[in-house]
Design a protein around this nucleic acid. Structure first.
Lengths: 216, 216
DNA sequence: GCAGAATGCTTCAATTTGTTACAAAAACCG
DNA sequence: CGGTTTTTGTAACAAATTGAAGCATTCTGC
C-alpha cells in the first residue's frame, strides 16, 4: 500500500491476465518493452475485453500519437525515465476522471446490490439486510471481508489474499486476524455458526463463499 | 482551423471569461505564467463553474501533483517546452475520453440542485432543505464538506482528500478537524446520528457518502 | 484412536473514531 | 475601533473496532 493505492507487480502477459482475473484491478501500468508479448499487443488485447484505465511506459522517441490514439486506446503514457511524482499525479488524474462517471464503479462489472441466501448486500450503502429487510450492522472490516468473499464467490481465497484485499497489506506469517474476522462474520450471517453454509473453510487453503450470488 | 480544431487565443483571465461566455469552448489550454491572475487561480475558478477539459502548460519543476489533483482539477498538463505533436495527442486523448464518458455528471454546469434521502441541497444558493422545505443552516465548512461528499458519492474519501477539498490544504498529521466537522454534519442531516445512513465511516480510510444522489 | 497441525473462538489491550467542552479565530455590527 | 456572535479547531475522554495471545476444538494421515 503506497499513497493510498495497493499494487501488484507481474512480470509478463500471462501473469497479468491471471491478476486481472483473480483481483479487481482498477488500473494497469504497462511497459512497452516486455519479454514475450510486447506492451502494444497486450494493451490492444486488454482493450478488446475491458475498459480498465491503462498507462503506458514508453522509451523516448516512441510514437506517442499511436499510444493514446484509438488504435491502442491507452489512457495516458509516460516517457522513461519519469518522475515518480508525475506518475502518481497521472494515476490520480485518471481515477478522478473515472470518478466523475456515476459513482459506483469500483470495477465496470460491479452491481449495486447482490443477493445470496436470504441476505441482500448493498455494496453502495454498505448495508446488509436480512429477509425481513432488517439491517444487520457490519463493521468496516466485516463488510470489506464479506465483499471480498462475495466478489470472488465459489472460489477459495487464501488468508493472504483476503488480508491483502481487506487491509491492503501482505500478511505477516502466522497472521490469524482473518480467522477472527471470519468468525465474527459467521456469527452474524450464518444461521448456525457451527455449520457454516455460506462461508466454508477450505482446509489448507483458506475460505470460500459458497452461496449463489445474484446481482440484483 | 488546424488539425480539425478551431481555436481562439486570449491574453488574460478577463478575455478568457468573455470567450467562455460568448463561444462554445470545448477545451481550455492554460499557461501558468500569465499577466494578472495566474493560471492556477484561473483553473480553480473555471473548475468551480464548469467541467470543461483543461490542459495546463507548466514550466519545469512545477508542482505537478497539485495541477492534476483535486484542488485544481486540470485534466492534463504539459511541461514547456513541449512537442506540438504531443499536445495534439493529449488533446485527442481528452476528447476521446469525453466521448466514452457516461452521463450522470454531478457538477455545477449540469444541475443546481441535488436530492438525497429526504434532503435537497442547492449547490448554487448553498441551501439545504428538508422534506418540508425548511432550510437547515450549514456553516461554510459544513456545506463545503457535504458538497465534497455528495460529489464523490458512494466512494470513500480519506481525511486528507477531504481537508484538501474543504480547505485547499494538505492536512497536518493527527488532524482531527474533519472528524469534528463530520460529527456536526451528521447531527444536522442524519435522523439518528448514532446510526448514520448517509455519511458512513470507513475505518482506516475515511468517510463515504452512501445515499443515492439524484440531480434534480 | 492418536499425534500433530489447522482452525475456532475468548479475552484483552492497542488503536481508531465519536463527541463534549472549551478556547481561539473570524465574521458581524454598531 | 470594542463587544457580540458564529465558526472552527484542540484537548480530553468515551465508545467501537480490531488483532495478538492463547487455549479449545476439529481435522488429517497414520
Amino acid at each position: 500500500m503506497q499513497h493510498g493505492y495497493r499494487m501488484t507487480t507481474v512480470s509478463d502477459g500471462t501473469e497479468m491476465r491471471k491478476a486481472l482475473r483473480d483481483w479487481n484491478i482498477d488500473l494497469l501500468i504497462l511497459d512497452i518493452m516486455l519479454p514475450g508479448e510486447d506492451g502494444f499487443a497486450l494493451c490492444r488485447d486488454v482493450r478488446r475485453t475491458s475498459k480498465i484505465p491503462i498507462i503506458m511506459l514508453t522509451a523516448v522517441g516512441e510514437d506517442t500519437d499511436r499510444i493514446l490514439g484509438l488504435e491502442l486506446g491507452a489512457d495516458d503514457y509516460l516517457t522513461k525515465p519519469f518522475n515518480p511524482r508525475e506518475l502518481l499525479a497521472r494515476i490520480r488524474a485518471i481515477f478522478r476522471r473515472a470518478e466523475t462517471g456515476s459513482g459506483t464503479e469500483l470495477t465496470e462489472n460491479s452491481a449495486e446490490k447482490v443477493r445470496f441466501g436470504s441476505w441482500v448486500l448493498n455494496l453502495g450503502s454498505r448495508e446488509l439486510r436480512d429477509a425481513d429487510d432488517v439491517v444487520v450492522h457490519l463493521s468496516t472490516g466485516e463488510f470489506s471481508l464479506l465483499r471480498a468473499l462475495v466478489k470472488h464467490n465459489k472460489r477459495p481465497l487464501s488468508r493472504d489474499q483476503l488480508v491483502d484485499i481487506v487491509r491492503g497489506q501482505s500478511s505477516i506469517p502466522f497472521d490469524r486476524s482473518i480467522d477472527i474476522q471470519i468468525s465474527r462474520l459467521r456469527r452474524k450471517i450464518e444461521k448456525d455458526a457451527k455449520n457454516p453454509k455460506l462461508i466454508k473453510t477450505v482446509r489448507g487453503i483458506g475460505y470460500q463463499f459458497c452461496a449463489d450470488v445474484v446481482t440484483a
